[in-house]
Simulated scan of single mutants.
Amino acid sequence: MKKSPSIISELYPLSFLALLLLLWWLACALGLIPAFMLPSPGRVLAAFIGDFPLLMQNAAVSLTESAIGLSTSIAAAFFLAVAMDRFAFLRRAVYPVIVLTQTVPTIAVAPLLVLWLGYGLLPKITLIFITCFFPLVVSILSGFAAVDPDTVRLFQSMGASRRQILWQLKLPSSLESFFSGLRVSTAYSIVGAVVAEWLGGNGGLGVYMTRVRKAYAFDKMFAVIFLISGISLLAMWLVSLLQRGAMPWKHRQDTRAILK
């Protein structure tokens, strides 16, 4: 029986991760790295299990912030992308400014947001919004630009309005590009929430990370790092499921390509 290429391709990263874990365990077991600098995988797992309720409580705070920031950035990116696609002068004026904002490090903007907006929820959501907004705008605009001009002219010759061309042609054609940007932004939203929480707050994985770092509890530090990575991967997988539901024809094409 022929193995599926998708299964084989997944074995490579899993094997590499297993190798890294083995090397990590050996380095700790043989005493090559001091335990206070690099805790063993067993200690990290024990710290994760021991602090699991507290980790979940803080994860709920971070996920709430990232969900609000991501959803607002999706809405704003969609409306701005539609406006920039409709008005060429707006694209020429706004797009370079959007690119310029991405050259400013997020960690440099975070203290200013705290200074202007305080230590509540608003500066964290704003930072997540800024982090996620650019990839979404670029992905949606790229999807609009990839539409076949001949198809647009065909719609126009049949009397389709701009709104009909947008909803019936451009939006369906830009879904793949949009979901590519959404996967990136979803991961950014979680990381952005953690970075924003470093500067203060009453809860969240970033606050938890700051507290265990000050206590030199590096086993708990590694535990929360792995949790953040796991949440990001899970969120990206959920976006892939959402894309499969929104684009069933794409999934069927990929399945046929694998079976050939």
Rank of each mutant, 00 (worst) to 15 (best):
L21H: 08
K3I: 08
I74F: 05
A146G: 14
G69W: 04
A35H: 15
A235R: 02
I190G: 09
L14A: 13
I130A: 11
I33D: 00
S174P: 10
L199W: 02
L175S: 03
A88L: 11
F36A: 15
D51K: 00
T210I: 02
Q168V: 06
F89Y: 06
E197T: 02
W198N: 09
R43C: 12
F16P: 10
L238W: 08
L54K: 12
R256W: 14
T64K: 11
I74L: 07
K250Y: 12
N202M: 12
R213W: 12
F178Q: 00
V207C: 05
L234S: 09
G50W: 13
S6H: 15
K124L: 10
E10Y: 12
L113E: 06
A46F: 14
F78Y: 07
A193P: 05
L166E: 07
L259Q: 12
A46P: 01
P96G: 00
V138D: 03
K3Y: 09
P41E: 13
V207G: 06
I107A: 15
V138F: 09
S232H: 10
G120S: 04
L127C: 06
K3H: 08
F87C: 04
S161M: 07
H251V: 12
K3W: 12
Q164D: 07
P111D: 10
P172C: 07
P172S: 04
M158G: 05
L55R: 11
Q57T: 05
T255Q: 13
V194L: 14
P41R: 15
A18E: 00
P41Y: 15
F48N: 06
L90V: 02
A77N: 01
L115V: 09
T255I: 10
S142A: 14
